[in-house]
Amino acid sequence: MKETPPPPANATTEELLTQLGPLVHLDVLENLLNQARARSLWPLTFGLACCAIEMMAAGASRFDMDRFGSGVFRPSARQADVMILAGTISRKMGPVVKALWDQMPSPKWAIAMGGCTIDGGPFKYPGQYAIVEGADKIIPVDVYIPGCPPRPEALINGLLMLEQKIKAGKKFHV
């Protein structure tokens, strides 16, 4: 423990975690856990705008996200693993999104669905005052899904990509 240099004072949580790493390494168990996590992603019931309707469509009978263990939409952030940011994040909503993210227990993931959450989408123009231009300005995003709005298939594909990412654990580089 002595060799580890102390983290810089202004480091973010994310940086701290990468630097320190887990205290106990249980590789086999960790892998097993990741397999389990990837197959039971519980999204937060949380719609921001247009994309939320496609998110609902993805959860309904035609596309049925339940086939991947992700159909259990949790109304409370404290029971959710994955935050699907579906829609434009307005500046008024930004702090709320951040608060919700902080309320989610770790390990947690975020999917940015639709152009607006990637970098402002159609609502981005010089002088825009109302929106946050990209969800990753507030919270770390794992998977991006472009489209306006993306089809439910795209959301499911994004979810599958997130599963791959989780299953790969730390060895996965993007």
């Binding site: 921001l48 705008a49 829609g87 307005s90 609502f123 825009q128 005052y129 109302a130 929106i131």
Partner: peptide, 8 residues
């Protein structure tokens, strides 16, 4: 919370 400045 969903103000997107359509009018602007």
């Amino acid at each position: 919370y969903s103000h997107r400045a359509h009018e602007k």
